[in-house]
Design a protein around this nucleic acid. Structure first.
Lengths: 350, 350
DNA sequence: GTGAAAGCGCTAACAG
DNA sequence: CTGTTAGCGCTTTCAC
């Protein structure tokens, strides 16, 4: 940090003009401020020549803006969020914004701390996958007029922009698909989380099951323990005890992963004996053996919508009393794992 | 952004003392500056009570520090980098630093632009997975005394801190493992990139092959086209034309993915007919059918080392003429995909 | 048309 | 021991 960066002041001195003029020119206000064409060109050329780069910190201190958006997710190493992060990042850059990501681990205290931190850094907008207990923090954020968009889940009694998917319908469709393919004892493996997205997924499953008068097979794993060994143990017990099961519907990526580990360790044939569907797609599912049927969220569209809405929020001066709630449809990508039992056996056990 | 945040000035006014005193106290310099215990306590309590949070922008403008580290990777949605990002982020937070990630897409211009941008934001340190042509940009960064650590690859003629793995040895070991398991015609599928990590991986493969007087089967895919359809087409052609192949060694994650897609589409039996090894592990490989043998990088250790070195660099005032090059060993995780041909057939074709 | 100057919030040298 | 003050680099009002 030794090479002193050229500042607006240096340019003014070198060109024997004033700081103000340089600032006006560099901010494209020559016209507006009636600055002569020659001076304007001279300043621009000189700035370019000596490689002037505005000090964004100073700019930010002065304007209260930072041209930074933050994307707070549960876990950046989760495929769904990582993919989305990349899409949003790209769109943000296209519009002159930088994107900062961070992982909240779905913990309220970490989320709160991070939000506080970004407020103090004049971040221009927040895209947040909220942890369960930060409704009031989000509420304050909105009261203080920070642009906020919630993603993936929301608080039913809080007025706030949000972009989510139709969890209930997706789940209903996926379950109905299994039913249509002759599966009669379909397990739904989920967490005990009270968050909207999980509740709606469960509801969709239950509606489909009830509609056909089938039996519910529900496993709710303690959210706190996801990823720990207990999760696998619980899944194994559940499967061992339910001999009648012929299909499994995993409510999230990490549950599927745990489930697959159990299948693999217990009895690899399960992959072909059970119908399998997962909420959330993953590139790997396409090339898995068998390939896995999954509910795919329209990542590109979600990302585009997020940035579009965010830019609108950031650029509007007037108050906006309206809040926008966007619900995307998902797509059920049907692959080998949910072929009807008969077909599956024909194909894989020649 | 309407609720005015309390500033140091407000505190000084309310407490009828001076800005300086408040600043000293809040920066933990009461002792050093001989400020009375009572006043100190009074200020701290009051600051806490009214929820004072320093404006980091102003702090940064003044001190030239930001308490931010940047982690520039090729692609944040790549599992390897996402995992590492999470580890580094956590360690950085523990030490009072925030971490910003971004994806360079391995492009020189985007990398250069990003580095410039972060310099202008007073980022305290750079952890960079460099794209091929930014040696001079890195060089400048170092000349300007910015702390820099290169990751995953380096420039052989540039003195710069780096953390890498022993690509050549890892590749040699993996190839030797295949050979030991009776595979005689082992393909190496890589890119035509000139970057150190890829070159060394190739060298390791070649050394192992030559040592046993086996035949080299090399496929170098144009780096620019990775992820495009041509990649898959090339792999398919290569495999179709080399009937004698009995094993494949993929030099990176995304090549394995393309390869698996080809296997899946062409002839799923290939998964069990070919020995398969991949450079870089992935949680999915463990639960794949067959589970995939992979070279696993010690992510935790790499992350810890990176942050440890970075903190040292950031905190040292004196010049450091030394540069540190760390080489980590990897671990070959042997799974089903590289069992000897005979065993594989016994197990999977009962 | 252009420039002087105030001030964003903070740190730290210097003065009492 | 505490306060005054000069900036960090920039934007923008107001004056000439």
């Amino acid at each position: 940090m030794i090479k002193k960066n050229v500042s607006i002041k240096d340019i003014a001195q070198d060109l024997k003009t004033s700081i103000t003029t340089v600032s006006f020119v560099l901010n494209g206000k020559s016209e507006e401020k009636h600055i002569s064409k020659k001076l304007t060109k001279e300043i621009i050329d000189y700035a370019f020549k000596i490689g002037y780069k505005p000090n964004q910190i100073a700019q930010s201190l002065r304007t209260g803006k930072s041209k930074i958006l933050v994307f707070m997710v549960e876990d950046i190493s989760n495929h769904f969020f990582a993919k989305l992060a990349k899409i949003i990042e790209y769109a943000a850059y296209q519009n002159g914004y930088k994107l900062v990501f961070c992982s909240t681990e779905n913990k309220d205290d970490k989320s709160t701390e991070l939000i506080e931190l970004f407020k103090n850094r004049n971040v221009d907008g927040f895209i947040i996958v909220p942890s369960p207990g930060i409704k009031n923090v989000i509420e304050d954020l909105i009261k203080e007029k920070h642009p906020v968009i919630l993603l993936d889940r929301y608080f039913s009694d809080l007025k706030c922009n949000s972009v989510i998917i139709d969890n209930q319908q997706s789940s209903f469709d996926a379950t109905s698909h299994l039913i249509a393919n002759d599966y009669k004892n379909i397990a739904f493996i989920t967490t005990d989380s009270e968050q909207t997205q999980m509740q709606n997924r469960l509801q969709g499953y239950q509606n489909a099951i009830n509609l056909k008068n089938l039996k519910e097979h529900l496993l709710k794993l303690p959210f706190e323990e996801i990823g720990k060994t207990n999760t696998k143990k619980n899944i194994k017990e559940f499967i061992d005890n339910k001999v009648e099961l012929d299909a499994v519907f995993f409510a999230t990526n990490y549950l599927a992963k745990a489930g697959f580990e159990v299948f693999k360790e217990t009895n690899p044939k399960l992959f072909y004996e059970l119908g399998i569907v997962n909420f959330d797609d993953n590139e790997i599912f396409e090339i898995y053996n068998p390939s896995i049927t999954a509910i795919s969220q329209p990542l590109e569209a979600i990302g585009a919508k997020l940035i579009d809405s965010m830019l609108r929020l950031v650029n509007q001066n007037e108050e906006n009393e309206m809040s926008e709630n966007i619900v995307f449809k998902t797509k059920l990508i049907i692959r080998e794992s949910s072929l009807s039992k008969i077909t599956m056996q024909k194909l894989f056990r020649p």
